[in-house]
Amino acid sequence: MNKIIRLLFFFFFSCLQLIARSQSQVEMADNFRGEGKIYVVIMVVLLLLGGIFFILFRFDRRLSQLEKQIEDKK
């Protein structure tokens, strides 16, 4: 019994290892991340996003002003 459990454990863990190895073989941008360059990309994208949001908020405010002017005119 003990032997079978041991065998099963061995089988299970070797399977896990195989899965892990096959997964780490897929090439990802690990180096690029390791060097911290991904933060540069994120900073640039966030900056652009911030610009878009700035324009959206400003346009919102301008629209509210115009709507108020029309309300006052009535």
Binding site: M28, I42, L49
Partner: peptide, 22 residues
């Protein structure tokens, strides 16, 4: 939500899939 999308989308762990990669 969009700031979270950019940060999370680039930094959180993603599955390692063949062909698709990053």
């Amino acid at each position: 939500l969009l700031i979270y999308t950019v940060i999370g989308g680039f930094l959180m762990s993603a599955p390692r899939l063949p062909i698709l990669n990053e």
